[in-house]
Every structure is written in structure tokens, then in C-alpha cells.
Amino acid sequence: MKGVLLVNLGSPNSTSVKDVKKYLGEFLMDKRVIDLPYISRFLLVKGIILNTRPKKSAEAYKKIWWKEGSPLIVLSERLLKKVQQETDLPVELAMRYGNPSIKNGIEKLANQGITEILLIPLYPQFAMATTETIVVLANKIVEKHFSHIKLTHLPAFYNNESYIKVLSNSIKKELDILQPEHLLFSYHGVPERHIKKSDITKSHCKIDNSCCNTPSEAHKFCYRHQCYETTKLVAKQLNLKENTFSTSFQSRLGRDPWLQPYTDQTIDKFAKNGIKNLAVVTPAFVSDCLETLEEIGIEAKHSFIQNGGKHFATIPCLNDNNQWAKTLSKWINNWNSKN
């Protein structure tokens, strides 16, 4: 019997400093998020970050928290309900960090007699710190606790025709209202070393202006290439004119080089260069969360206005968009019929 597990990033249980600290500890101690040797990672996270960042992060969460709880959790649950209505297979929801856990999600399916699970990381683009960490952990849990279950996972869908169409339609709906001068595609940032570590050829990724456009098997696991490809495909679908859109990367941590250009610097530059009406879309996320609602929707907007801009809009993620739910369900049903 088959079942499906949708997996998103996760969230603290509340906006209390204690809960945020617990969540950040689990998140940042993941060796695929901060890829330092354990001792170095422990000293950095436990000794420095968790003594300084939780209070600030808790304040940020308070700005975007809903009455029902964490926006990411609430939106993921809404999506889950819609997907469940479109398929006959049992579908459960889990988070990589926090609750409900991946183990809990697998256990729920196992208790229903499920022996084969399709794992769907809710990330369009592959990255060590997103898709890979979900798949690796899920496989470990199955091997240790549910050895009778066969686990497969949906690969990155950044260039899937159905996904691009749904994403483009959701963006177009907002653009028709906003009529911005420029559309910025802001993706979550990762350290440059993550790109090179994910290069299965060990030679292709140079993070220059050519490697992402040069065909290679490395692209299957190259987050940078997949982000730019998503932008390119959406721009083509929407017939966006050259120089009216661009790509940037947000949320960097530490002093090591991360993917550039940086979103905060790009937005400030637009304002200083005379752009008055800017829209930002965040296609690395399928659900609105702290990074989209607070970092972009509040902080970036404030900075844009402060530097001379006038109109700033954050285009919502796909969230529980009906067509997105139907697309996910179609993938699930196709998997079910082919196996």
C-alpha cells in the first residue's frame, strides 16, 4: 500500500525565545546547513549564535505570526488538506525541523499499513540544506525504525512544465495589479562552497557567468543553476522584457562568500538608482515564512522606501493555491499509476 509524505522546512512551536532557540539549535546544528566539522559547528552554534540570535529571531517571528500559529505551518496544513482531496492515497505532512517531525509523519503512514512512501520535499530547487537533508534524514529514519517501508522521493521540480506554469500564473495575477518597473526573483542564499560540494563532476561548477549556462550533468544538483533556470523559464512564460527582471539571493550567515548578488544590496541599489515601483517574488519557497514575510515583506520594504523607493510589493508564494495543489496531486497520482 502506498502513501505520500510532504515535507517543508519547519518552524518554532511559538514565538517565545525558548522555542525559537530550540528550533534554531536543531536547524543550525544540521551539518548540511552549517557544513563545518562537528566541534567547530558546536562551538559556533552553541557558543555564539544561540546566545545572541534567538531573542532577535523571536522578535522577527512575532511580527509575522498568525493567530492560528506559524504561517508556514498553517499554509502547509491548508495545502495538505487540498492535496488529500485530490488523491485517494494517504498523504501526511512533516517538517525537517520542529513539529510534526519526519519520523512522526512516517509513523502515521506506517500505522495505516503503508509499505511504500513517496517523499516530496517542498523545495523546487535542490540544495544540500533543503532537499538533501530531508532525503538523508528520511532514509535514516526508515532504515532504523521502518525497514519494511520502501522510500522514494520526488526530484527537484524547478524546471517542471506544470510547476512553471502554475508559478507563472500566480505571479502574473499579481503583476497585472502591481505593474512594477522591475520584478526581482529572490532565492534563499547558500554558501558558495555548497555549490561546489554538490557538483557531482567535481570540476564543472566555478560560480562564474558561464558554468550555469553550459550544459552539464552537474546541473541536476546545482542550486545556483536551478534558480537561474527557474527565473529564465518564468520570464519566458510571462514574456518579460529584458532588464525588467533579475535574480538575487537572500539570508546569508557568517563571513564566507555566499551566492551573489545579495538581495538586500540589490534592493537598496534599485531604490538609489531611481526604481520607484518594485515587486519581489521568492520562488525558492512554496510557502510564505519568516524569510518572505519578515525579511522581504517588512525589512526589505523598509529599506527600499528609506533609500528612495515608493511602492514595494512581495508576491505571495504558491502556498495553498488551488492549481498548485492540483499539480502536486497530479504528480502523486502519476507516481501511483506508474508503480
Score class of each variant (00 low, 15 high):
Arg252Gln: 14
Pro257Trp: 11
Ser76Asn: 03
Ile305Pro: 10
Val74Phe: 07
Leu72Glu: 05
Ser337Thr: 14
Gln84Asp: 02
Asn319Gly: 03
Phe27Tyr: 11
Ser57His: 04
Thr244Gln: 06
Ser168Trp: 12
Leu6Lys: 09
Ile149Tyr: 10
Lys18Glu: 11
Lys236Asn: 15
Ser248Pro: 10
Asn51Tyr: 12
Ile120Phe: 07
His148Cys: 02
Glu229Leu: 13
Phe245Tyr: 15
Leu72Val: 15
Gly308Thr: 11
Asp199Thr: 07
Thr130Leu: 08
Asn139Gly: 12
Leu290Ile: 11
Asn322Trp: 00
Phe157Gln: 03
Ala300Gly: 10
Cys227Gly: 01
Arg32Trp: 01
Asn111Trp: 01
Asn159Tyr: 08
Lys269Gly: 04
Lys144Ala: 14
Asp208Asn: 11
Lys326Tyr: 01
Lys173Ser: 12
Gly47Trp: 06
Pro37Cys: 07
Glu132Cys: 09
Pro316Thr: 12
Asn333Leu: 03
Trp65Asn: 00
Leu233Arg: 13
Lys56Arg: 13
Met29Tyr: 00
Ile200Asp: 10
Arg255Asn: 13
Gln125Ser: 04
Tyr262Trp: 08
Ala110Asn: 14
Val91Gln: 10
Val83Lys: 01
Pro124Phe: 05
Leu122Met: 14
Trp65Glu: 04
Glu299Val: 12
Lys22Gly: 07
Leu328Val: 08
Phe312Thr: 00
Asn51Lys: 15
Asp30Pro: 04
Gln112Asp: 10
Ser216Trp: 04
His182Arg: 14
Asn273Met: 07
Ser57Trp: 01
Gly98Val: 12
Phe185Ile: 05
Phe249Gly: 02
Glu161Trp: 06
Phe304Glu: 02
Asp208Gln: 03
Lys165Ile: 09
Leu259Pro: 02
Phe157Cys: 10
Ile48Asp: 05
Gln125Leu: 04
Lys172Gln: 13
Ala129Tyr: 01
Leu253Met: 15
Ser337Tyr: 08
Leu293Met: 11
Tyr228Phe: 14
His302Arg: 14
Ser168Ile: 13
Ile200Cys: 07
Lys272Tyr: 01
Ala58Phe: 06
Tyr97Val: 12
His188Phe: 08
Lys56Ile: 03
Lys82Trp: 02
Ile120Met: 15
Ile177His: 10
Ser16Ile: 00
Ile315Arg: 00
Tyr97Met: 09
Gly309His: 02
Leu122Ser: 03
Met128Gln: 08
Ile34Cys: 05
Leu151Pro: 09
Asn334Glu: 15
Lys63Phe: 08
Ser11Thr: 08
Val20Phe: 02
Val280Trp: 03
Glu174Trp: 09
Ala60Glu: 05
Val142Ser: 06
Ser162Lys: 12
Asn51Ala: 04
Lys81Pro: 01
Asp320Arg: 11
Glu291Asp: 02
Leu175Asp: 05
Ile34Tyr: 11
Cys317Leu: 07
